[in-house]
């Protein structure tokens, strides 16, 4: 097996995992009951999906500098995504939007 073959199949597997997390994040966005739970789905699943896609692309990248650049982009998305998540949750809490809770007792 050449490196080309290994990188090809390895990256394909990583793309499949990444696509799964993007799909799961979107399903969470559709199914979850309130803003806060939907934020959980978006922030965690989509960032992870992007991480897998970036790692798959890194296996196919033509140079090291491109690999580092791909991970720099992921890092920026993680940091801005988590910050945006806090801002939105903070604003929603500040506006008095109560979180959904399961009925019980």
């Amino acid at each position: 097996m050449t490196w080309e073959t290994i990188a090809g199949w390895g990256s394909t597997a990583l793309f499949a995992v990444g696509a799964f997390f993007f799909f799961a994040g979107s399903v969470g966005l559709v199914r979850f009951p309130d803003v806060y739970t939907r934020l959980h789905a978006l922030t965690k699943a989509d960032n992870l999906g992007l991480g897998f896609v970036v790692t798959g692309l890194a296996l196919r990248a033509e140079s090291w500098i491109v690999v580092l650049k791909l991970y720099l982009i992921w890092l920026i998305v993680i940091v801005t995504g988590a910050t945006a998540c806090y801002l939105v949750a903070n604003a929603a809490r500040g506006s008095g939007l109560e979180p959904w809770t399961r009925e019980r007792r």
Binding site: A24, G25, G28, R31, F32, A41, K44, A45, N47, L48
Partner: peptide, 10 residues
């Protein structure tokens, strides 16, 4: 974290 939220969503 991603796995946990994916499991709950799906």
């Amino acid at each position: 974290g991603g796995l946990d939220v994916a499991r709950r969503a799906l």
